[in-house]
Computed example of a mutant assay.
Amino acid sequence: MKTIAIIPARGNSKRLPNKNLLLLGGIPLLVHSILFAQKNPSIIDEIYVTTDNAAIKNIALQYGVTVIDRPDAFSGDLEPTISSVQHVLETITHAVDTVVLLQPTNPLRPENLLQEAYVRFCMNDADSLVTVTRNHQKLGKIINNSFEPYNYTIGQRSQDLEPLYFENGLLYITKAKVILEGKIVSENSIPYEVNHIFANVDIDTLDDFDYAEYLINKASRLRSTRQL
């Protein structure tokens, strides 16, 4: 049985046009997820990009991955990711056991993330794994034009907050059967905590993109310094 990576990369983006094609660190945004998958051949047997865009398709093919042409019905602004991922599984002809979902909008990932998360997934009787990061902010709601604390009391120190976590989108590991049922994160899911600066990168706007570029440039400078 196979473990495949699926990278959903549609062409139309409202807030940041053509974001999957923008050059980040000298390569298209989409390619960061492709290279991450290719660095894990002991886990990932095949890599699929699902897209409705000819330019994205051409780039993916240049990097040697299989492209699934996404129907217009699964390419709208309001269409959930699960639709395109299901379509990939329904299109390929051989059996798949597990899917690693890599969103191109999360291009920066710790180097050993997949190996470590996959071991955790295999060691547990779970149908899916989701990467999460602890939140350290004081959150609240605005009700009737008044701010009401949600996860703290006024005067409470931030280090004393009850632990809350957010879904960071770095990667998902899910049994294929669960995806075919219409879910990426199932009820029988386990979290994998990632407290890394890359967990705060999710590109939807130009500011998000600029922040990711800053982190890449900073990492490049550090590598250059160590080589001197």
Results as ranks from 00 to 15, higher is better:
144 N>I: 09
146 S>Q: 15
124 N>T: 14
110 P>L: 10
142 I>V: 13
1 M>I: 14
206 L>Y: 10
185 V>W: 03
69 D>M: 08
142 I>P: 01
45 D>H: 07
22 L>G: 02
126 A>T: 11
195 N>K: 14
12 N>H: 15
78 L>D: 02
118 Y>M: 06
172 Y>S: 02
97 D>Y: 08
221 R>S: 11
44 I>E: 00
185 V>C: 08
121 F>D: 00
201 V>P: 03
193 E>F: 03
215 L>H: 05
28 P>D: 11
89 L>K: 05
134 R>C: 03
181 E>S: 14
92 I>W: 03
203 I>V: 08
120 R>N: 15
22 L>T: 02
84 S>F: 00
96 V>L: 10
215 L>K: 04
127 D>H: 10
221 R>P: 01
87 H>C: 07
92 I>Q: 11
91 T>I: 05
9 A>G: 07
199 A>N: 07
60 A>D: 02
37 A>P: 05
119 V>F: 12
164 L>C: 12
147 F>Q: 09
97 D>V: 10
193 E>P: 05
63 Y>A: 00
140 G>R: 08
89 L>E: 05
182 G>K: 13
212 A>N: 00
63 Y>M: 00
154 I>M: 11
82 I>L: 05
119 V>G: 05
60 A>Y: 08
218 K>C: 02
154 I>Y: 14
21 L>N: 02
109 R>C: 03
102 L>D: 01
159 Q>V: 13
4 I>T: 09
210 D>N: 14
35 L>P: 01
183 K>Y: 07
151 N>T: 09
18 N>R: 13
63 Y>N: 00
72 D>Q: 10
32 H>V: 09
83 S>P: 00
58 N>R: 12
172 Y>R: 09
178 V>I: 13
37 A>L: 04
43 I>P: 06
15 R>K: 13
109 R>Y: 01
88 V>K: 06
208 D>L: 03
169 G>M: 08
58 N>V: 05
198 F>I: 04
125 D>I: 03
175 K>G: 11
196 H>Y: 07
107 P>G: 11
33 S>T: 02
209 F>I: 07
226 R>H: 13
195 N>E: 13
128 S>K: 04
208 D>H: 11
185 V>T: 08
53 N>T: 06
38 Q>M: 12
62 Q>C: 02
4 I>K: 05
95 A>W: 07
145 N>S: 14
181 E>V: 06
78 L>S: 12
145 N>F: 04
38 Q>S: 15
170 L>W: 00
168 N>M: 06
168 N>Y: 02
169 G>R: 03
47 I>T: 04
132 V>H: 01
215 L>F: 06
27 I>W: 09
88 V>I: 11
111 E>K: 15
111 E>G: 11
66 T>L: 14
39 K>T: 06
57 K>P: 01
107 P>N: 14
64 G>P: 10
103 Q>N: 14
182 G>I: 10
78 L>H: 13
169 G>T: 05
48 Y>C: 05
71 P>S: 06
169 G>F: 02
115 Q>S: 11
207 D>K: 13
19 K>E: 08
119 V>H: 12
152 Y>F: 15
4 I>R: 08
115 Q>E: 15
90 E>G: 04
64 G>H: 13
56 I>Y: 01
202 D>Q: 15
216 I>Q: 07
222 L>K: 15
113 L>K: 01
